[in-house]
């Protein structure tokens, strides 16, 4: 519940962004993000909402932890929380 998960914006339509989470594309709401986002931006997401546009050049460091978890320990408690965050977003429409 304290966790935010980073993802790459691939499309924006109104207040909905299509965000790529390690190959899985999901819809994320942009109602509360702190700055305008465009394809190519990374955003931090929490329960289906983008809460921060991650400054360019800083996304890499933010992604490392999540990539390691999702790659190495798919059934781990923390990895399951990350998966829950991704599941909180809507599927493609």
């Amino acid at each position: 519940m304290c966790l935010g998960v980073p993802g790459l914006v691939v499309a924006v339509e109104g207040n909905v962004a299509t965000v790529d989470f390690w190959g899985v594309r999901k819809q994320v709401l942009l109602d509360v993000v702190d700055a305008a986002v465009a394809p190519g931006d990374y955003v931090l997401n929490h329960v289906g909402f983008a809460i921060r546009r991650i400054p360019a050049g800083e996304a890499r460091a933010t992604l490392e932890l999540y990539e390691q978890m999702l790659r190495d320990m798919p059934e781990d408690l923390m990895a399951l929380d990350v998966r829950g965050e991704i599941a909180a977003t809507e599927g493609p429409r």
């Binding site: 519940m1 304290c2 929490h46 329960v47």
Partner: peptide, 29 residues
């Protein structure tokens, strides 16, 4: 998983839906 899914449940079911909302300020937003 999200408040949006609870809202959608209310919209599609027509039932009274109460979202029991927990979490700190990040989630309250």
């Amino acid at each position: 998983y999200s408040v949006s899914q609870a809202v959608e449940l209310a919209r599609t079911s027509g039932r009274e839906v109460a979202f029991f909302a927990c979490g700190f300020e990040t989630t309250a937003v």
